[in-house]
């Protein structure tokens, strides 16, 4: 259907979601596929069609998603079941919801920035450290696909 006059348009709701891990860059299309897969498998074709989910924008480690008004709770449930996008593990955390994109963009501007990246060396291995608000650090080693548990204590830092 072509462009409709304002009174004929469907009312929309917008959700702001934090992308985890924030250091991985995703395109809106990749996230859209992941959200559609999660919504369709959870709610089925009929409800997903009524929901009309889409990814409006992805920036600074956050995504703004859109759905029809009244279906936002269902979309929030569906995005809680997103586990991967473009064959990379990912989780989406709903942060806020609103009736306008503008208010979510303002909210996004107030949210903490994506982690700053530092190149470090640990045990003779070159790593990239991504530091976030809340004393969190991700250590990423090139070519390593598995996860390794590391504990940093004050004593350890003094030795270094």
């Amino acid at each position: 259907m072509g462009r409709r006059p304002p009174t004929f348009r469907l009312k929309r709701r917008y959700l702001l979601a934090r992308i985890n891990p924030p250091w991985r860059e995703f395109e809106a299309k990749e996230l859209y596929s992941a959200v559609m897969e999660a919504a369709t498998s959870l709610w089925g074709d009929r409800i997903t069609a009524c929901m009309q989910p889409s990814v409006v924008t992805v920036a600074r480690g956050y995504a703004i998603l859109r759905c029809t008004r009244g279906e936002d709770e269902r979309l929030a449930t569906a995005i809680a079941t997103v586990v991967g996008a473009n064959r990379h593990p990912v989780s989406l955390r709903t942060v806020a919801r609103s009736g306008t994109i503008l208010s979510l963009k303002r909210r996004m501007a107030r949210m903490p920035l994506k982690g700053e990246r530092l190149a470090i060396e640990r045990g003779g291995r070159a790593m990239e450290a991504v530091r976030y608000a809340g004393q969190k650090i991700d250590l990423i080693e090139e070519g390593i696909k598995n996860q390794e548990l590391l504990f940093f204590t004050d004593n350890e830092l003094e030795e270094r």
Partner: peptide, 18 residues
């Protein structure tokens, strides 16, 4: 088993509402 598998209180509510 990792940060990506954790879910918040509100997500827990939504999932339990299922």
């Amino acid at each position: 088993a990792s940060v990506l598998e954790q879910r918040g209180v509100r997500d827990a509510m939504r999932l339990c509402a299922l």
